[in-house]
Computed example of a mutant assay.
Amino acid sequence: MFDFNFGIKNLYSVGYIEQPQRGQDIVLTQLGENDELTSYPRPEQEKMIRSYWDKKNEARKKKNKIRKLQ
């Protein structure tokens, strides 16, 4: 399940799907429907994915730091 969940987040980060909601169907965006996927992920998409995960990791670090201070 981890690979699936990370894959969904990666597709969301490049704009191929709408933000996933628990218990709801995955919805493709127009970009996700029309983009050529043979070269996925392209270098610019890899940067977008990396940026998404960097932000998530930074938020997680801040959250953990706050927990340690309490």
Results as ranks from 00 to 15, higher is better:
Ile66Lys: 15
Ile66Asp: 15
Phe6Glu: 15
Lys68Glu: 00
Ser51Cys: 05
Pro43Met: 03
Gly15Arg: 05
Glu36His: 14
Lys56Arg: 12
Glu46Lys: 11
Ile8Gln: 11
Phe2Arg: 04
Asp3Cys: 09
Met1Ser: 09
Trp53Phe: 08
Ser13Tyr: 03
Thr29Ile: 02
Lys56Asn: 09
Asn34Arg: 07
Gln24Ala: 12
Gly7Leu: 09
Leu69Ala: 05
Asn64Gln: 14
Gly7Gln: 03
Lys62Cys: 00
Val14Gly: 05
Asp25Ile: 02
Lys68Pro: 01
Lys62Tyr: 00
Asp35Trp: 06
Phe2Ser: 01
Lys56His: 09
Leu69Pro: 00
Gln19Ser: 12
Asn10Ile: 04
Gly23Ala: 13
Glu36Thr: 10
Met1Phe: 03
Asp25Ala: 07
Lys68Phe: 04
Gln70Gly: 05
Glu33Ser: 14
Gln24Tyr: 03
Gln24Asn: 07
Gln45Glu: 14
Met1Asp: 07
Lys61Tyr: 02
Gln70Lys: 13
Arg50Met: 09
Thr38Tyr: 15
Tyr40Asn: 05
Phe6Pro: 00
Tyr52Ala: 04
Gln30Asp: 13
Phe4Trp: 08
Tyr40Gln: 06
Pro43Glu: 07
Pro41Asp: 00
Ser39Thr: 04
Gln24Cys: 14
Arg50Val: 12
Arg42Met: 00
Pro43Arg: 02
Asp54Gly: 03
Leu28Trp: 09
Leu37Gln: 10
Tyr40Phe: 08
Gln21Pro: 01
Arg22Glu: 13
Leu69Ile: 03
Val14Leu: 12
Asp54Leu: 06
Tyr12Ala: 07
Val14Trp: 06
Asp54Trp: 00
Gln21Ala: 11
Ser13Leu: 08
Lys61Glu: 12
Arg22Ala: 13
Arg67Pro: 10
Leu69Thr: 02
Arg60Pro: 00
Ile66Arg: 15
Glu44Arg: 10
Ser13Met: 00
Glu44Ile: 07
Glu36Gly: 03
Gln30Ile: 08
Phe2Glu: 05
Asp3Phe: 06
Gly7Thr: 02
Tyr12Cys: 07
Leu31Ser: 14
Glu36Asn: 12
Arg60Tyr: 06
Ile66Val: 02
Leu28Cys: 14
Arg42Asn: 09
Lys62His: 01
Gly32Phe: 06
Tyr40Trp: 11
Val27Leu: 15
Glu18Gln: 15
Ile66Leu: 05
Phe2Gln: 01
Gly23Asp: 07
Ile8Glu: 06
Lys55Gly: 05
Ser39Lys: 08
Arg60Gly: 01
Glu18Lys: 13
Ile8Met: 12
Ile17Tyr: 14
Pro43Lys: 03
Pro20Leu: 10
Tyr16Thr: 04
Lys68Tyr: 05
Lys47Asn: 15
Phe4Arg: 01
Gly32Gln: 13
Lys61Gln: 05
Ile17Leu: 11
Leu37Arg: 11
Phe2Leu: 10
Ser51His: 12
Gly15Pro: 02
Ile8Asp: 13
Gln24Trp: 01
Gln45Arg: 11
Leu11Val: 03
Ser51Pro: 00
Asn64Ala: 04
Phe2Trp: 07
Ile49Tyr: 00
Glu36Ser: 11
Lys55Met: 04
Glu33Ile: 13
Ser39Gly: 10
Asp35Gly: 01
Gly15Gln: 15
Met1Trp: 01
Lys61Asp: 11
Ile49Ser: 01
Gly7Trp: 04
Tyr52Lys: 07
Phe6Cys: 09
Val14Ile: 04
Trp53Ala: 05
Gln45Leu: 06
Ile66Pro: 02
